[in-house]
Amino acid sequence: MSVPRYWRERRYRYRLIGETCSDCGALVFPRRAVCPRCGSRSLEEQQLSEMGSVVTWTVIRSPPKEYGQFTPYVVALVELDDGVRVLSQLVDVDLEAVEAGMRVEAAFRRVKEDGDSGIIEYGFKFRPIIE
């Protein structure tokens, strides 16, 4: 992962920044050049909700390169409270305890490292909301 490539995505990874369509009001994540609902090019940046519920999930047991240190880990489709769906790891949770409808919140976490001397990469993951 090169520095420029990592640097430009940091805002979308550190905060859940999506877009809102000025014409139809749709919330869009990840960013697009054109609104997928109405075709408008007037898209403005929008902070998305950072809380939501689990729609469905899986447990990754044959990880890609650089993700071995967290294996096995949960990846879930989360529906945020503003209706946007995002894909993300679920952390701080027992593999057997994950349920559809579980309430979760975004958390800033380490994702992977580029070898011993490269960039340490961060991003959002979701964790159970403790009531």
Binding site: R13, P30, I60, P64, Y67, F70, V75, L87, G123
Partner: peptide, 11 residues
């Protein structure tokens, strides 16, 4: 998408 989907570590 390498910057988002694959970045979650999903296969």
């Amino acid at each position: 998408d390498q910057e988002y989907t694959a970045y979650t570590g999903v296969t």
